[in-house]
């Protein structure tokens, strides 16, 4: 998974073509850490069909807020640089993320 931050977010996500998943996480967010291995596994599985990024909100707070993220965990989906969908809080589960990926790839 590609680590994105304030210096490369524009290029890697907002200027990117096609579908991009961004895992907004933070080191103090236990549920983010819990789901991280699942997202990594999904990146292995679907990495050739969409781009997987993760964003540590610690140190990138303003960037997160600019993306309307003000709480964790959030898995956001962008298509051609446009945020098109997201999962937040309790909805962030392996099953839901995979279902959303399949829905957006269809």
């Amino acid at each position: 998974m590609l680590e994105v931050h304030k210096d490369n977010f524009e290029a890697e996500v907002l200027q990117a073509e096609g579908l991009v998943l961004v895992d907004f996480w933070g080191p103090k967010c236990e549920s983010c850490l819990a789901v991280m291995p699942d997202v990594e596994a999904l990146a292995e599985k679907y990495g050739d069909r969409l781009k997987f990024c993760k964003l540590n909100t610690q140190g990138n707070r303003r960037l997160a807020i600019s993306q309307k993220v003000l709480g964790l965990p959030v898995i956001a989906f962008y298509r051609n640089g446009e945020k098109i969908d997201e999962l937040a809080k309790d909805d962030v589960t392996k099953e839901n993320i995979e279902a959303k990926i399949l829905e957006l790839l269809a």
């Binding site: 549920s31 909100t57 964790l72 937040a88 809080k89």
Partner: peptide, 18 residues
């Protein structure tokens, strides 16, 4: 508005609110 300001976990989200 969960994850957009509504939270049940200060530990997770407090530092957004500096």
């Amino acid at each position: 508005l969960r994850g957009k300001g509504v939270s049940y976990c200060a530990t997770c989200d407090a530092d957004f609110f500096e």
